[in-house]
Each structure stands twice: as C-alpha cells, then as structure tokens.
Amino acid sequence: MTIEHHVGDERLLAYGAGTLDEATSLLVAAHLALCPACRSDLELAEAVGGALMESDRLAPPADETVLDALVRCIACEDDEGSAAAAAAPLGPFVLPQPLRGYAGGDVAGLRWRSVGGGIRQVPLKTHGAGATARLLSIPAGKSVPEHGHSGFEATLVLAGSFYDRGSWYRRGDVGIADSAVVHRPVAGPEEDCICLAVTDAPLKFVAAVPRLLQPFHGI
C-alpha cells in the first residue's frame, strides 16, 4: 500500500503539539495508523516537544511529597495485581483505531443514514467547537454533488477510492479542499467508497436539492 496524499506538515505538527481540534486530530490519528512515513514525522515532532521541555532549566525543584504520594499509590497498585490483559480484537477491520472507538464498531455494524443520492453517513461525536467529523459511504461510480467550501474539508479514504481534480485517492490517502475549491469527487468503480470527512464549516452545494436536504442532515 503506497499512500500518496498525506495530512500536511502544519497539521501533523499541530497534532504533535496537541493544539489541533479533536475532529481533525481524529483524522490525523486514523491516517497515522495507516501511514508509517507520517508516524516517523510525528516522532520528530514529539522529539521537538521533548527538547523544548527538557531545555527549561528554571523550573523549581520537584515536590518530594508528590513523589511520596506516587510511590504509595504504585505500592497499592502492585498489591491489587495487574488486571488481566484484554483479548485482542479479531480483524480484519476497515476502520483502524481510534475510528472504531468513535464510530462504535466497524463499517458493517454501524447505523448508516441516507443523505440522498445513495450517499449515507454516520456522524461521529467529537468535543470542542469548530470542525465536525462523519463517515461517508458513496456508492461505487457515484459522485458527491458539486459543492464549494466555507472553510476546510479533509477526507481520508478507508475503503474503495475516489477521483478528484486529477488524482485518485485510495485507502490511507487524504484529500484537502479549502474555500477556493469547488469540486465533485467521484467514487471509483470497484466498490463503495468509505471515507472519513472532517469539515469546519457547512459545505455549499451548487444544486438546489442537496441545499434543501442540508438543514436536516447537517453536512
């Protein structure tokens, strides 16, 4: 599997710093589960965090009472014994963690709701203002109605593929569109395209029907 479209340096760096909103962080984490190259960059970002933390030489010395409390609570944990390891879940799965946790299961077990045009979605609950996340299922060969963006849209492919503005996007690839983009992504012919879509503002559909549907479905 070769991933050609990545999450972008500034987003990866913000994920490493911990300043990215939860919905976009979910997309970055799911991409990281599928992309060894971006994981090596995350290690680099966390090395930066570690080096900046390490370089603080002005911090007052540690409070020994906190250490005492820690050692006491470690001692009682040891008495209780470690809990039995949870059984490893059986794959294969379409959705990598942390996505299954957010969705409440893998693709086949979810409650998909129609948003029109054969497209179905599962909204994912994330905290914080700003971006929202949803899983989308687009029938093989069908397109998402032409739309523009008030903000930014990132789409991570999890199954199947889609074609958009001259490129194919396959499992693990991330497509990014901003307010300058009006597009009509088309799912590949081989199977339904399952993707995670994160947006920080409602899409602006060009045609009238999706615009009518929008208030009810919140895309």
Partner: peptide, 28 residues
C-alpha cells in the same frame, strides 16, 4: 512530553485525544 500533552488536552480543553493503536489488527 507526549503523556503530559495528552493529560493537558484531557484536563484543560475537555477533549479526548485520538491516538492510533499499534496492537490494532487494522494498524499498518
């Protein structure tokens, strides 16, 4: 640093920190 960062997201922003899981069968 990464552990402290995740605790602070949890506590100060009241958000969850989504993270990948190397033990997950779908992990590449």
């Amino acid at each position: 640093f990464a552990i402290a960062r995740n605790r602070s997201i949890d506590a100060f922003r009241r958000e969850r920190r989504p993270e990948f899981d190397r033990q997950d069968p779908a992990f590449q």
